[in-house]
Every structure is written in structure tokens, then in C-alpha cells.
């Protein structure tokens, strides 16, 4: 009968994370603080702040909670998926 298409849900917002962003997000998702994440990545705490600031700007959000919300929603952390996570 009807054709196979879903009109409403294909426009999922896209954002690509760099390897460094991905690594940082993964550490924070584990519960690392900025300082301990910075240590593990061998970068300064200030760099951590900058990376996150940049990411928040790109997503159009203002704080850490919103950043987590957006990344969780887009399944950029903690969630696998050949369909969702593999583009970056």
C-alpha cells in the first residue's frame, strides 16, 4: 500500500567530533574531572576548557549539562552504533 518512507525523522542534527574531542568526552563520561582528563590526555586543563567551549559553541549550548544532554541525545558518547557513531 503506502510507500516506505518516514518523512519526519530523517533530519537528525549532525556533529562530527575530532579524535581528541571524542577522547575527552569519553573520559568525562566516565566521571573524570577536567584535571584528571587533562592529565590522561597529556594536555593542560586550560586546553580541556577550550575544547569543551568550542564544542559547546558548535552545538549551540551554554553549559556542561546541556553539552552532556546534546551528546547523549546524539549518542556521541557511551552509545555504540554503526548507524550513529561512526562518521567522525
Amino acid at each position: 500500500m503506502a510507500r516506505d518512507c518516514i518523512p519526519t525523522m530523517s533530519q537528525k542534527p549532525k556533529i562530527n567530533l575530532s579524535d581528541r574531542e571524542r577522547a575527552l568526552v569519553a573520559l568525562l563520561a566516565q566521571g573524570c574531572t577536567d584535571v584528571s582528563a587533562a592529565e590522561q590526555l597529556g594536555i593542560s586543563a586550560r586546553s580541556v576548557t577550550n575544547i569543551l567551549r568550542n564544542l559547546m559553541d558548535r552545538l549551540g549550548v551554554d553549559n556542561r549539562f546541556q553539552l552532556g544532554l546534546a551528546l547523549g541525545f546524539l549518542r556521541k558518547a557511551n552509545v555504540p552504533g554503526p548507524s550513529d557513531g561512526g562518521e567522525g
Binding site: 549550548v61 549539562f65 546541556q66 553539552l67 552532556g68 544532554l69 557511551n78
Partner: peptide, 18 residues
């Protein structure tokens, strides 16, 4: 807060303004 956001986002509790 970051983890809280991440979890709630993944559970689709609210939609973030993106």
C-alpha cells in the same frame, strides 16, 4: 552535571536545544 546530561539525553528525557 555532564554525566547527568549525557544520561538524560541518551534516555531522551528532554530534547536539548541544538
Amino acid at each position: 552535571r555532564f554525566q547527568l546530561g549525557l544520561t538524560l539525553g541518551a534516555l531522551r528525557v528532554v530534547t536539548p536545544p541544538m
